[in-house]
């Protein structure tokens, strides 16, 4: 799996990161090197090994279906960069 500048450009688009063409070669080289480290994993036999997504075996806890929150709009809008009519304002979304 060779990493090209196109790969990095695509990944940056998916991740919503603007990467300038000046930055692209350095990121490509670094990420290619890091991914090079990963190649050693291929040789490890892992058939039948259950993937581990959690550090500790446990099951999901559940909370009771109760409303405990009240209106806190003012508090939650306080950090927003652009607010209008009680809403978060964003550039026009074209659907």
């Amino acid at each position: 799996m060779s990493i090209t500048e196109d790969t990095i450009r695509h990944v940056a688009t998916l991740a919503r990161l603007e990467i300038s063409s000046a930055e692209l070669p350095a990121y490509t080289g670094q990420i290619a090197r890091i991914l090079g480290l990963m190649e050693q994993l291929r040789a490890i036999p892992t058939d039948g090994v259950e993937p581990m997504s959690h550090a500790v075996e446990m099951t999901i806890p559940e909370r009771l279906d109760q409303v405990v929150n009240t209106d806190q709009r003012a508090l939650l809008l306080a950090n927003a960069p652009d607010v209008e009519a009680g809403c978060f304002r964003v550039p026009k979304i074209i659907e």
């Binding site: 909370r63 109760q66 409303v67 929150n69 209106d71 709009r73 809403c87 978060f88």
Partner: peptide, 18 residues
């Protein structure tokens, strides 16, 4: 996933939490 009311039709962003 949180204790906010599950209700339709309230004023914008009045039924939200962090």
């Amino acid at each position: 996933f949180c204790g906010c009311p599950n209700r339709f039709g309230a004023a914008p962003n009045t039924q939200i939490c962090p």
